[in-house]
């Protein structure tokens, strides 16, 4: 195991411990320590990764990547589910930034529009209807936090070690290793990006598009059917609480 691997291993372990500490637990506390460990773990990961071409690209990548990871961590570990959703939106912005960084502009915009604009909003609607704003017991206790954090640490560690190790091994696929950047400029990184996307979508991947459309129709119908037979008004703590029932106070 070479040096980067050991660093990555340490980073994975520390990261796992950090996540465990950050998860909502019965004993509470440990959030500060978790945050510190998380920061250390991120730093180690960044150090283990091979550097990019110039410092601007490197720092931009670290910024975007760090923002995404931290937002995702908070989206998973906060107690109030509304805050979770908000931070999830933040991580979506980070992912979108990473897409931009890579040259997948259409995808970046689509992520923001569809994911953050539609799906996230839908989550928030449901949360508004049903949530107890983090005060309920089920939001403050997690199940099997240690085991899941350990699994995640193992997974991430193994994957990153495998990726880092194999990408620099001599067994790398030679057909793609020597793709000149010029070719990429013609292909994936072409200027007329959306045109290319359109050409690909309705050319090579037409069947997939049609299938996706059918899937959307099925989901629409299914959701309508499931919710369409609702029995009476929605039940919730706010609806049943006589003091808070109704709307804002008048007068």
């Amino acid at each position: 195991m070479t040096d980067p691997h050991r660093i990555l291993l340490a980073a994975a372990v520390l990261g796992g411990m950090a996540v465990w500490l950050l998860l909502p637990r019965r004993k509470g506390g440990g959030i500060a320590l978790g945050g510190a460990l998380g920061a250390v773990s991120l730093g180690l990961t960044a150090a283990a990764l091979p550097g990019l071409a110039d410092w601007l690209a490197q720092s931009l990548f670290w910024l975007l990547g760090g923002m995404t990871v931290v937002s995702a961590a908070w989206a998973v570990t906060l107690r109030n589910p509304v805050y979770c959703a908000i931070w999830f939106g933040m991580s979506l912005l980070g992912v979108s930034g990473l897409f931009f960084f890579q040259g997948a502009q259409f995808l970046a915009v689509a992520t923001v529009v569809v994911y953050a604009g539609a799906i996230l909003v839908m989550f928030l609607f449901i949360l508004m209807l049903a949530s107890a704003s983090g005060r309920a017991r089920y939001d403050r206790v997690s199940l099997e936090g240690l085991l899941s954090a350990a699994c995640a640490a193992f997974l991430v560690g193994v994957l990153s070690i495998a990726v880092t190790g194999s990408l620099h091994s001599p067994k790398l696929d030679s057909s793609s290793a020597g793709i000149p950047q010029a070719q990429r400029q013609q292909g994936v990184l072409a200027a007329e990006h959306t045109k290319q996307i359109g050409r690909q979508l309705f050319g090579r991947y037409l069947v997939a598009v049609e299938v996706a459309g059918t899937l959307l129709l099925a989901a629409l119908v299914g959701a309508a059917v499931i919710v369409g037979h609702a029995r009476g008004p929605l039940v919730g703590p706010r609806a049943t609480d006589p003091e808070t029932a109704g709307g804002p106070r008048h007068g």
Binding site: L143, E144, S148, C151, F154, L155, V158, A162
Partner: peptide, 22 residues
């Protein structure tokens, strides 16, 4: 009867498989 436990069992199985393969 707890679904996260089922999911955990599944993931542990996948990880065992992954580890064996690697």
């Amino acid at each position: 009867g707890l679904i996260p436990i089922y999911a955990l069992a599944m993931i542990v199985g996948v990880l065992v498989l992954l580890g064996t393969l690697l």
